[in-house]
Every structure is written in structure tokens, then in C-alpha cells.
């Protein structure tokens, strides 16, 4: 088996996905930035803005996985792509880079803008660790759904995974704030990075890496790609 990647074609496939997804990204970016404009307006605006922001990031991730991975099979554009000089592994790498960059760029912009809002407004900076934990969790949801999409090739399984992981946001927030080392500093003027806060982020990072590695593992074992 030839294990070399077809880098020029991977670049073309990444550019193709960016081109096809460009309008979706722009819409969710505008939604995310609009949500940010609410956050500093007062108490109810803060909760409304936060809810909108989380919804925008969830929507961005789910929409992208559906249109880029699920629909590629459902709408039969996958045979078109796989007729090109590309191996299933090239396809996986192209999808990984394209999807991750398509999610990470707006995700980073929205996360960075959120931190800027915290710094320049009266909202206490003590919120930052919790915000980062939730932000990383949203990325984890995306990565797990992406990996499940690549492995299962099933629309139903992907939708279930998306719904399930996104439903866990509430319980995750509840659990994290049960740690006094996190909750007791939420109203503090400065962010406090306790061991629990850092640990929550590290655990999520490990889960993300495991999810992505499992996609590569299963792809390498597949004997039937289409």
C-alpha cells in the first residue's frame, strides 16, 4: 500500500471545501459577532448574548459537518471526488484540515472577541476560565461529531452524536461550576486558573485527540470506501 499523501490534491480539496462553505461561515460569523454585541449590555443581555453565542458555534459546527461530510455521501458528490487521483486517506486528511480550519478560524475569532469583551467591559474576568472550558467543549463536540461522521458514514448516527454532545453542555456547565475552585472565582476581577480548570481543558484536549486518531484508525482499516 502506498502511504504517501497526494499533497497537491489535498490542497485543492481543502480550497474546494472552503469555497463551498464560505457563505455558511460568513452567516455564522455575523451571528456570533452579533451575539457578542449583546453581552456587555446588562444582565439579561449577557445571558441572551451568551446563549446566542453558544448557539452560533453549535450551529456552525453542526451545519458544517452535515453539509461537508453527511451531504457529500447523501448527495452523491463523494463518488465525484473519489474519482480524482486521491486515496481515502488523502480524502480524510483533506477533510480534517478543511473542516478543522473552517471551524477553528471562526471559533477562535468568536472566542477571542469574547475575551476582549470581558476585558474591556465591567463583566468580571473571573468568567474567563469557565468561558474557555465551554469554548473548548464546543470544539470537542465538533471533533467528536466529525470523527463519528467519518467513521460511521451514517446521517442518523451523526445527528444523534451532535444532539447528544450538545445536550451535555448544560450538565458540563453544572459539573464544572460544582468545583468551588472554579465557581468561587467567577465574580473575581482577575481570571483564576485552578488545577481543576486547567484539568478540565487538558481532559477535553485528550478526548479531542483520541476522537481524531480513531477516525484515522478506522479509515486505514476500511476495505470498502464507497
Amino acid at each position: 500500500m502506498n502511504h504517501g499523501l497526494n499533497t497537491p490534491l489535498i490542497k485543492i480539496l481543502i480550497a474546494k471545501d472552503w469555497h463551498i462553505q464560505r457563505k455558511n461561515i460568513a452567516i455564522y460569523m455575523v451571528g456570533g459577532l452579533l451575539a457578542l454585541s449583546f453581552i456587555s449590555g446588562g444582565e439579561w443581555q449577557f445571558f441572551m448574548g451568551t446563549t446566542l453565542l453558544i448557539s452560533a458555534l453549535i450551529g456552525l459546527g453542526n451545519h458544517q459537518i452535515t453539509s461537508s461530510i453527511v451531504n457529500e455521501r447523501k448527495e452523491h458528490t463523494l463518488p465525484f471526488i473519489m474519482s480524482l487521483p486521491v486515496t481515502p486517506m488523502d480524502y480524510l486528511v483533506a477533510k480534517l484540515i478543511a473542516n478543522m480550519s473552517l471551524f477553528i478560524v471562526p471559533w477562535l475569532i468568536v472566542c477571542a472577541a469574547t475575551l476582549v469583551v470581558f476585558w474591556i467591559t465591567p463583566i468580571p474576568n473571573g468568567f474567563i476560565p469557565l468561558t474557555v472550558i465551554i469554548g473548548v467543549y464546543l470544539f470537542l463536540c465538533y471533533c467528536v461529531s466529525w470523527s463519528v461522521g467519518m467513521i460511521s458514514e451514517s446521517e442518523a448516527v451523526v445527528i444523534f452524536t451532535m444532539v447528544f454532545t450538545n445536550c451535555l453542555i448544560g450538565p458540563i456547565m453544572y459539573t464544572v461550576t460544582r468545583f468551588s475552585s472554579i465557581s468561587s472565582h467567577i465574580a473575581a476581577a482577575e481570571a483564576v486558573w485552578s488545577i481543576e480548570a486547567v484539568g478540565a481543558i487538558v481532559i477535553q484536549a485528550v478526548i479531542i485527540l483520541l476522537a481524531l486518531a480513531s477516525a484515522f484508525y478506522w479509515q486505514a482499516r476500511k476495505k470498502t470506501f464507497l
Binding site: 502506498n2 497526494n6 480524482l84 487521483p85 486515496t87 488523502d90
Partner: peptide, 11 residues
């Protein structure tokens, strides 16, 4: 399928 990239470039 080992040389599929070389093959598909000509198919």
C-alpha cells in the same frame, strides 16, 4: 488499490 493515485490520474 496500492497505486490508485497514479491510476486515477489516467482514468
Amino acid at each position: 488499490p496500492a497505486q490508485q493515485v497514479a491510476v486515477k490520474a489516467q482514468i
